[in-house]
Nucleic acid binder design. Structure first.
Length: 750
DNA sequence: TTACCTCGAGCTCA
DNA sequence: CTCGAGGTAA
């Protein structure tokens, strides 16, 4: 391939005048390739080969050619890396495979336990050793990149692991990330390839950025990670484009039609080969001795690496072994992050306070002289409980060692007793609640001390409302702690049921609460009226009633009225509810205050309904059997399953003659083929939603999500495969659907 | 727990 | 323009 030198560029710029589109395409291709290579040298290899001035010349030449021949413009061209239109928000992006987190180890013993557990599950004998890949644990932000037919199509943050945020526009500006893998991948191109890795900032680049920020009078960033996170979260990609972000790939996610690798290390090598940056630090090791040695090698280089790391990651190298080891509760059994010991800093314990939680638990919090540790300023540290305080013998005026353990939470490691001043006062459990004055008692055998004030305690009252409004409960957007306090202080509300009887004039009279805030609150409260029963029960904050209990209760009783009528025996009989839960429920429903409280909700129009108990006779799905296969564009399988069950249908695992419908998403497998063979009707997500949109909007939230994901014209929805296209119900006009907010967001599921 | 981005509110100054 | 709230990330 001819090298495109500045000299040949001159020729090409002469040629620009007289060129035809035939050779224009060739020249544009050469220019793009040259610029991509130069970006690769600079941002991936960290080894620039041409001077900046030549790079600029190439870049301007490409722009000129693309402008003259706009038919060859391409979103994957390097000229598109300058950042596009400003976004108004980041769209939700569902991961086709969940982005799991890796469990942590802090001590060498835990690494040993990890190795022992893996060997045991593999059935290894004494002396037999597993092979691990040891690599650095980058201190940045996890990101998932999707390539379709070699072209970059999407970048998503981790989010809750299921649904992240779509940051494609920002990631397009990161020159360390290739936009076009077609040259590197060879044929046949994988239909879809997901690359996972970490976006971070090099220390040098971070220092330079902060210099720039300082010069411009802007705020400096606290550390590399925050600078990278802040840069990626910009709604304006043009700002992101000016930030020196890098990317290191560390795993493959979904792969369709790509070369099959046998091991993690092979995959890493392959990623390096197709244009992704590699730390060069990953090695394959045998057994515990090997991984610990490799960790030391990486740890010794830590200070001189170009980027921050906070530990190493061990992964069982062979894919077949990984498969055998599998997962336990959303974390792979075959991987472990082994963190470096956290930085420890001494500071002065200047005072302390008691925090009263939603359930009255009194938590001591140490107030220390602010110290910079682990990349942030720490000034307040939870002491967990008074037993802990006594055990560590923490006193006011002590010099204490602070560290950021685990992921984020600052921890008081120990007291330096030698530095204790005379007469330092111990931290004692208060006998009275600082908020309401009620007695604080500690139940023998329990760690927690509790305020007995209950409903009269201001702290518990406000936090109960906060809890009620939170994302996982009634999801009343933009109603956070401070707003709740404001509402209490001005007597706008006395409990959460008052949210459904808000006095607009009182709201308008609140300080720092303009018309926009008033309308937003009213709208969000209104939208929460129809949350399903399970969330409502959970949101009430009944002691010992968590998410799963609330779910069972909703399923069993079907309405809040029925639940309030139930006896302790009734509760006992509910699946998964034991004597403790039943007692606490019985106490709740027999309390006249609670009965009145619930009645107010009902009177004020809250209508929590459980999808499973909604009359479903009108739904065509009633009593039908569905099979779900492949990845759906916006719903997870669990969502789809829940919706089917809500509509009175069943979900089964395999296709047979008894199957009524197959719901198929992307990369559907043999189930789809079988459905076609048997002539079972096949639905895509849009058709499925249409089918299920019965006269009753069973779940307001789902209809909001639907609005944001579906094309505006349901009749344009195309089935993914041949088969009968079924059901074109009214998706949008459900009678009591809440008007969609201007910018609906989908939420992580409960 | 802290840091960061974004937005609304409410201020100053033109 | 500054402040502070809410949301998100680790």
């Amino acid at each position: 391939m001819a090298q495109l030198t500045p000299q040949s560029l001159e020729i090409s710029s002469d040629a620009l005048e007289s060129s035809t589109s035939a050779n224009a395409e060739t020249i544009i291709g050469l220019l793009r390739k040259e610029i991509d290579t130069s970006n690769y040298d600079y941002y991936v290899l960290d080894d620039p080969k041409i001077p900046d001035i030549d790079y600029d010349m190439l870049f301007r030449a490409l722009e000129a050619w693309e402008n003259k021949f706009p038919q060859f413009k391409d979103s994957h061209s390097p000229t598109q890396r300058v950042g596009g239109e400003r976004l108004s928000e980041f769209a939700p992006a569902r991961h086709s495979r969940p982005m799991l987190s890796i469990s942590n180890a802090f001590e060498d013993e835990e690494a040993g336990e990890f190795d022992a557990a893996c060997r045991k599950k593999m059935g290894f004998l004494e002396g037999e050793e597993l092979e691990y890949c040891v690599e650095p644990k980058f201190d940045g932000l996890a990101i998932s990149l999707t390539y379709e037919h070699g072209l970059f199509t999407r970048a998503a943050t981790r989010g809750d692991g299921e649904v992240g945020e779509d940051v494609t526009a920002n990631v397009r500006t990161i020159k360390a990330i290739p936009m076009d893998l077609r040259g590197a991948l060879g044929n046949p191109l994988p239909a879809r390839l997901e690359v996972r890795g970490e976006i971070l900032m090099h220390r040098k680049d971070f220092a330079r950025l902060n210099e720039r920020q300082r010069a411009a009078g802007e705020k400096e960033f606290a550390n590399c990670r925050n600078a990278a996170a802040g840069s990626l979260r910009q709604l304006d990609p043009r700002i992101t484009a000016t930030r020196p972000l890098r990317f290191y790939a560390y795993a493959l996610g979904e792969c369709v039609g790509t070369p099959i690798h046998q091991s993690h290390m092979e995959a890493l090598e392959w990623l390096k080969g197709i244009g992704f940056a590699s730390s060069g630090l990953a090695t394959v090791q045998k057994g515990l001795g090997g991984v610990l040695a490799a960790r030391k090698v990486i740890g010794d280089q830590r200070a001189t690496l170009p980027f921050d790391i906070d530990g190493v990651v061990y992964k069982v190298n062979a894919y077949n072994a990984q498969e055998k080891l599998g997962f336990i509760s959303r974390a792979p059994v075959w991987a472990r992050a082994h963190k470096f010991p956290p930085e420890e800093v001494a500071t002065l314990l200047e005072g302390w306070a008691v925090q009263i939680g939603r359930t009255g638990v009194a938590t001591p919090v140490a107030k220390v002289k602010t110290v910079f540790v682990g990349g942030v300023n720490v000034s307040s540290i939870t002491l967990h409980n008074f037993d802990e305080v006594a055990k560590k013998d923490v006193r006011i005026g002590d010099t204490v060692i602070v560290r950021r353990a685990g992921d984020v939470i600052p921890e008081l490691a120990r007291v330096i007793f030698e530095r204790r001043p005379e007469g330092a006062q111990p931290i004692m459990m208060p006998s009275q609640c600082p908020v309401c004055g009620s007695a604080i008692v500690k139940i023998e055998g329990e760690a927690a001390a509790r305020c007995t004030g209950g409903r009269i305690c201001g702290a518990q009252k406000t936090q109960a409302v906060e809890h009620f409004a939170s994302r996982r409960m009634m999801d009343i957007d933009a109603l956070g702690g401070e707003t709740v306090n404001l509402l209490f202080e001005h007597n706008v509300i006395a409990d959460s049921s008052d949210l459904y009887a808000l006095d607009v004039e009182k709201l308008r009279a609140l300080p720092r609460f303009g018309e926009v805030s008033v309308q937003r609150l009213l709208r969000n409260v209104e939208a929460s009226k129809g949350r399903d029963l399970r969330r409502f029960i959970f949101a009430l904050g009944i002691p010992n009633v968590g998410e799963s209990t609330a779910k069972s209760l909703a399923k069993t009783f079907g309405s809040i009225e029925a639940l309030m009528q139930a006896s302790e025996q009734d509760f006992q009989r509910v699946n998964d509810i034991g004597p403790v839960g039943a007692k606490s429920l019985a106490a709740f429903v027999s309390d006249p205050d609670n009965i009145a409280f619930i009645q107010r909700f009902i009177d004020r129009g809250a209508r929590p309904t459980d999808a499973a108990m909604t009359p479903v006779s009108a739904t065509p799905a009633l009593g039908k059997t569905f099979v779900i296969t492949g990845t759906l564009p916006s719903l997870s399988r669990d969502d789809a399953k829940a919706m089917v069950e809500a509509a009175g249908g069943k979900v089964s695992g395999s296709v047979s003659k008894k199957t009524d419908w197959v719901l198929a998403g992307a990369e559907a497998g043999t189930k789809l083929t079988k459905a076609q063979d048997l002539g079972v009707p096949i639905l895509d997500e849009a058709a499925f939603l249409a089918l299920l949109s019965a006269p009753v909007a069973s779940d307001e939230e789902q209809s909001v999500e639907t609005d944001s994901e579906l094309p505006p014209e349901p009749e344009n929805a195309t089935p993914v495969a041949s088969g009968e296209l079924v059901g074109q119900g009214d998706l949008f006009g459900a009678p009591d659907a809440i008007p969609a907010q201007p910018a609906p967001k989908s939420r992580p599921r409960m």
